[in-house]
C-alpha cells in the first residue's frame, strides 16, 4: 500500500446548534485502500462523509482532497474534482423521474460527453456489473426493491470511473448473498482500478472481508484508525464491545476459520 494520502481531514469540528458532533477529528484516506468507518449511532459517520464530499461546511478545521480544499475552489474546478468522486448514499438517492438506465447514463452524457446511445450501452454494462437483472435497467427506482436500489445507486456511483468511492452503509438491507457479491465486486474494482474506498458500515463481515484499515469514530473523534487486528485489540470499552461481542466473535470466526480469541 502506498503511503500517499488523498484525503486529509485535520482538526475537523462539526456542530449542530449546541450539539457537538466532531471535535479535533483527524483522518487520512490513502490511495488504493478500503477504509472502513465504524461507530455507534449518532457518532457522525454520515456527517463526516458529507463534510468530505463538500455537502456540508465544517464548523472548524480543514479537509483536503487530492491536496485541494474543496470548499475554497471555484465552481468549475470543484466540479472537475467532484467527478472523481463516486458517492453511494444510504437510501440510494436515485432520481425518481428517470429509469435506472437513465440514472446511470446521465453523468456519462453530461460529463463524459457520450452520445445517448453510447451512454446507455455503457450503462447496461454497469447494470450487469453490479448484478442487476437486465430488465431492471428500464424500471423506475420506485419499482425496485431496497437491495436493487442500492445496486443501481452503486452503478451510478461507478459511472464516471471515480478515483474515490464513498459508500454509506452499502450492504445494509442486502441479503447475505448479495452483500457478499457486493464485497467481492468492490474488492475486484479496488485491485484492478486502484480505487480508494471510504466505507461507512455496520456490517462486520464487510469489515473483515474487505477493509484494509478501520477507523473507529467515538467521543467526537477518530479513536483509532489502523489494521483490523490492531483496532480490535485496542483497549477501549466500546471497541471491545463492538468486536468481541457475540456478533463480532461470529464474524471473526467466519473470516479466520478459528473460534474468536476471547
Amino acid at each position: 500500500m502506498s503511503g500517499e494520502a488523498i484525503i486529509e481531514v485535520r482538526d475537523l469540528g462539526n456542530r449542530f446548534g449546541a450539539q457537538v458532533v466532531h471535535e479535533h477529528l483527524n483522518l487520512d484516506l490513502y490511495r488504493g485502500e478500503v477504509l472502513g468507518v465504524v461507530g455507534g449511532s449518532g457518532t457522525g459517520k454520515s456527517v463526516l462523509l458529507r463534510s468530505i464530499v463538500g455537502l456540508r461546511e465544517p464548523s472548524a478545521g480543514r479537509i483536503t482532497v487530492f491536496g485541494e480544499d474543496l470548499l475554497s475552489l471555484s465552481g468549475e474546478r470543484r466540479s472537475l474534482l467532484e467527478r472523481r468522486f463516486g458517492v453511494l448514499y444510504q437510501r440510494g438517492a436515485l432520481f425518481s423521474s428517470l429509469t435506472v438506465l437513465e440514472n446511470i447514463a446521465l453523468p456519462l452524457i453530461e460529463h463524459a460527453k457520450l452520445s445517448r446511445e453510447a451512454a446507455e450501452r455503457l450503462a447496461r454494462v454497469k447494470v450487469a456489473l453490479v448484478g442487476l437483472p437486465s430488465n431492471a435497467g428500464d424500471k423506475y427506482p420506485t419499482e425496485l426493491s431496497g437491495g436493487m436500489v442500492k445496486r443501481a445507486a452503486l452503478a451510478r456511483a461507478l459511472a464516471l470511473e471515480p478515483d474515490i468511492l464513498f459508500l454509506d452503509e452499502p450492504t445494509a438491507g442486502l441479503d447475505p448473498i448479495g452483500a457478499a457479491a457486493f464485497d467481492q465486486l468492490i474488492g475486484t474494482l479496488r485491485d484492478a482500478l486502484g480505487l480508494s474506498v471510504f466505507l461507512v458500515t455496520h456490517d462486520l463481515d464487510t469489515l473483515y472481508s474487505l477493509c484494509d484499515r478501520v477507523a473507529v469514530l467515538a467521543r467526537k473523534q477518530v479513536l483509532v484508525a489502523d489494521r483490523l487486528d490492531v483496532v480490535a485489540d485496542t483497549d477501549d470499552a466500546w471497541i471491545r464491545e463492538y468486536f468481541h461481542g457475540p456478533r463480532g466473535r461470529a464474524a471473526t470466526q467466519a473470516a479466520t476459520g478459528v473460534p474468536g480469541s476471547s
Binding site: 447496461r124 454494462v125 447494470v127 450487469a128 456489473l129 448484478g131 437483472p133 437486465s134 430488465n135 435497467g137 428500464d138 465486486l185 475486484t188 474494482l189 485491485d191 484492478a192 482500478l193
Partner: peptide
C-alpha cells in the same frame, strides 16, 4: 484479468432485453 472476467461474466448473464 479478474476485472475482465467479472465484466465478461456480468455481460454474459445479461443479454439486452
Amino acid at each position: 484479468r479478474a476485472l475482465l472476467q467479472t465484466i465478461g461474466q456480468a455481460m454474459a448473464d445479461n443479454e439486452a432485453p
